[in-house]
């Protein structure tokens, strides 16, 4: 993907750019808001990573101006602010996802990948598949090798989030946000326990893999 990174802190920018380049992306870095806006409008990027606090034009203003200009490039906003309403403000301004500093790089990468491949709304699949696991979103049924598996509504939602991102890492925080609408890190291993339950219901060999320090990924057992 071609990614535009708008970040005024040189150190953070270098780390993020190095990491994203390492993951196989093309990264262009701009250190201030106004230049970032110009670049984002004209540059044909697949994804924008924008810091919230920027010189000249802050991240919120940048995204607002961008959306007003009709540019719908997926945008991930970063912030060092402890502000509680910031997330809502960022999303209201038109950002697609929001990540508070400090973040594990794995978290950033997972979100970048999730955003970069977000399917258009009208192309929503109604059946999700990984190996012999099949999930019918319309009938709300889950089968493995033809065997029906009964899931609680929350387990269904958890599996759905994982399968929509099949093959890609989904972090603990992404799961908390998308499955429980919880926007803080409860520290304890609550997500892990839900995943183990789900794993147990889905049977062997497991399709939900834990990536230490990163999150979870749904993929066939042999991969």
């Amino acid at each position: 993907m071609r990614i535009l990174l708008v970040e005024d802190d040189a150190g953070t920018a270098a780390e993020v750019a190095r990491g994203l380049t390492g993951a196989g992306h093309l990264v262009n870095h701009v250190p201030d808001g106004r230049a970032g806006l110009m670049e984002a409008i004209g540059g044909g990027y697949d994804l924008l990573v924008v810091d919230r606090m920027l010189p000249n034009l802050d991240g919120l203003g940048l995204v607002r101006a961008l959306r007003a200009a009709g540019v719908a490039t997926p945008t991930l906003m970063l912030t060092a602010r402890a502000g509680l309403g910031d997330r809502v403000e960022g999303l209201d301004a038109g950002a697609d996802d929001y990540l508070a500093k400090p973040f594990a790089f794995a978290e950033l990468l997972a979100r970048v990948h999730a955003l970069g491949r977000r399917p258009a709304l009208n192309a929503e699949p109604s059946v999700l598949r990984v190996a012999d696991l099949e999930m019918d979103l319309l009938r709300r049924s889950v089968t493995r090798a033809g065997q029906r598996i009964e899931l609680q509504p929350r387990e269904f939602r958890l599996l759905e989030v994982l399968l929509r991102q099949a093959g890609r890492v989904v972090t603990r925080n992404m799961l908390l946000e998308q499955v429980w609408d919880i926007h803080f890190d409860p520290r304890t291993s609550v997500v892990e326990t839900h995943i183990s339950r789900l794993r147990a219901k889905l049977g062997e060999p497991t399709l939900i893999h834990t990536l230490r320090g990163a999150g979870y990924v749904a993929r066939p057992p042999d991969a």
């Binding site: 802190d9 602010r81 500093k101």
Partner: peptide
């Protein structure tokens, strides 16, 4: 001041964390 502290301290801490992670 709170915002400044948040920005000035958390950004380098985040960087430190990223370096340690690698």
């Amino acid at each position: 001041v709170t915002d400044d502290i948040a920005h000035d301290l958390r950004t380098p801490l985040t960087r430190l964390r990223q370096r340690l992670e690698s």
